[in-house]
């Protein structure tokens, strides 16, 4: 096949740790096959070349500066398909934690007294990219899983709709044969969090923090009650959702 026939894809990165791009790059086994099927025209982590004639754009990271709003909009104009890559981009992710504090305070904590002097450090409340542009598909997780990234990419190449789970992590937990953390005297938010991660955190002895965001129709009230029954205060129960769920729960209200 000639190169010009291959679909062109691009990767973009905004406010984040770029961990999701690294996950995508670490699909060593599949990369040669993938590269024979697509042209990557923009990928800061992997190639120097930069072109903007892409069809599929994978966008990683939250929008947290005014300038990024324009950049994201430009990508939307050029791309046929926009995929949000990872929690930062899909749900706002960890970045939204800062939205709970006044921006001046956040800046000072991170950059110290010099913060005021630097105009380029000015930020707006962090938000998922779909707060700015329409998004076609979401790859959830902090970080994303390789298999889901490949599934979405392969589906798009085949012209199929990717299957992204709309059931809670409890399903993955049962499929993995885990003992529920509530049995072990801990609590988690897997009951309302979108599955697709194979419940990896629970399998390895931790709890689910909810990094993949909420399912479409979560029973949050029921889970607040459960958390209270397991010893958390009302406030403690609510704060369980805030590590990754800041944007979904508060949106711009609290800023």
């Amino acid at each position: 096949m000639k190169n010009k026939q291959k679909p062109k894809i691009a990767f973009f990165s905004f406010t984040c740790c770029e961990g999701c791009q690294l996950q995508a790059l670490s699909c060593e086994d599949e990369l040669p096959d993938v590269l024979s099927l697509v042209d990557i025209v923009n990928f800061r982590e992997a190639i120097d070349e930069k072109r903007d004639d892409y069809e599929i754009a994978f966008i990683e990271g939250s929008v947290s500066r005014t300038q990024e709003i324009e950049e994201v909009k430009k990508i939307r104009e050029k791309a046929k398909i926009v995929v949000a890559l990872g929690a930062c981009s899909s749900t706002g992710g960890l970045n939204c934690l800062k939205n709970r504090f006044p921006m001046e305070e956040v800046k000072k904590i991170v950059y110290g007294d010099k913060a005021k002097k630097y105009k380029h450090l000015d930020t707006i409340p962090a938000r998922p990219i779909d707060a700015v542009i329409p998004v076609d598909y979401y790859i959830h997780g902090c970080p994303i899983t390789k298999s889901e990234f490949l599934h979405v990419l392969k589906s798009l190449l085949l012209g199929k709709k990717p299957e992204i789970p709309n059931y809670p992590v409890c399903v993955d937990c049962k499929l993995a044969g885990n003992i529920c953390v509530f049995e072990k005297g801990m609590t988690c938010v897997g009951t309302v969090t979108r599955a697709g991660c194979s419940a990896i955190c629970i399998t390895y002895g931790c709890i689910c923090w909810g990094c993949r965001g909420l399912i479409d129709n979560p029973n949050i009230e029921a889970h607040e009650e459960t958390l209270k029954r397991y010893g958390l205060t009302a406030e403690g129960a609510l704060s369980k959702f805030d590590l990754y769920g800041g944007w979904e729960r508060h949106g711009e209200k609290k800023q």
Binding site: C27, D29, E30, D33, V34, S36, L37, L150, H151, K154, L157, L158, E163, Y167, P168, C170, V171, C173, K174, L175, C180, T191, V192, N217, P218, N219, A222, H223, E225
Partner: peptide, 30 residues
């Protein structure tokens, strides 16, 4: 129904629930 999560755990632990979904997964070479 009001307090249920719709989490499916009751199905998965049940020795007589047998519903399954069938899916295709294609390799990266398509």
């Amino acid at each position: 129904g009001k307090i249920c999560y719709g989490c499916g755990s009751c199905n998965h632990v049940c020795p007589t629930c047998y519903c399954f979904d069938v899916r295709d997964e294609i390799k990266a070479n398509l």
